[in-house]
Design a protein around this nucleic acid. Structure first.
Lengths: 148, 148
DNA sequence: ATTAAATATATCGTAACACGATATACATGC
DNA sequence: GCATGTATATCGTGTTACGATATATTTAAT
């Protein structure tokens, strides 16, 4: 058994591969969205809005948190998506400051289609992604659990 | 055991969670780069250049492919990185059209630091990422291999 | 060899998008 | 009820990836 830490070249290589695999997935996703007539970010917005657990109030702030965006960027994203009839705002009755987000029928249909495609693609890509991740762990002095 | 296909709500939920986990990692990565004084894309460029296997000639086109960018965008990214002394171009002798990319000492140092941080963070995040991925597989009619 | 097609990189103008700063409406604490 | 905080909205700005195009060099064709 040889040392894991020393050769940093290996770590760079595994990290680079991991990011490449990730990028491939993201490229696929961006293309799929475009072909369905959506901006990639709109797709992500729809997904986070529709994918939220039923109790949580789906507000702008919630979407912003899930998308990793600032609130104002999310407002603009919602504006665009509303204009294209993908999503709709309804004022919250409990708290009139809040805007509650819901998908339109059109939004639901597009998302459905995209989600199927993504599930299929992820089934293809998952093994490589997981393998790349595991390799990073191995070469970063991880507690050496069950490799492969 | 209950059916996997029918309720598309579960698939949306698992996909949303997967993307959220992914976004968390990317946010971490963007922050780490910024704090090290790099644009996130510059970090990715350095990683792909330094992480390439030793035989492959690291050209603009190679970097573009690995980063999922168009060639011209990569040229601009390299321009910026060269100006900031992170990377250097040397004309290829075999083919004078090509520019060979290499990290500067400074580039190597920054990347080293970032790579350590990323390896550590990925060790933390990997389990959740892998779990989220597996759940997508489960809810997309996958051949039901070894769950959890 | 000379020209034509292909490949690699570079330049330039443009548009999308996320952001900071700021504004407004409503809610909550004291 | 006034002050402080929270949620969303608006506006101007800068970065960046892109398409279209240009230039240099290599490869292919005749």
């Amino acid at each position: 058994m040889r040392s894991e830490i020393d050769d940093s070249g290996r770590l760079l290589h595994t990290l680079a591969d991991f990011r490449y695999e990730l990028r491939l997935f993201l490229l696929f996703s961006e293309n799929a969205a475009q072909e369905a007539g959506l901006q990639p970010q709109q797709h992500q917005l729809l997904l986070q809005v529709a994918g939220a657990s039923h109790e949580t109030p789906v507000t702008i702030a919630f979407a912003a948190g899930r998308l990793g965006l600032k609130h104002n960027s999310t407002v603009e994203l919602v504006d665009r998506s509303e204009r294209e009839d993908l999503i709709e705002r309804t004022a919250d009755k409990e708290d009139k400051r809040r805007a509650i987000l819901r998908l339109t029928r059109k939004g639901r249909q597009v998302l459905q289609k995209l989600s199927g495609e993504h599930a299929r693609e992820l089934n293809e890509m998952a093994p490589r992604l997981v393998r790349a991740l595991r390799r990073v762990q191995v070469h970063s002095g991880a507690p050496a659990v069950e490799v492969l």
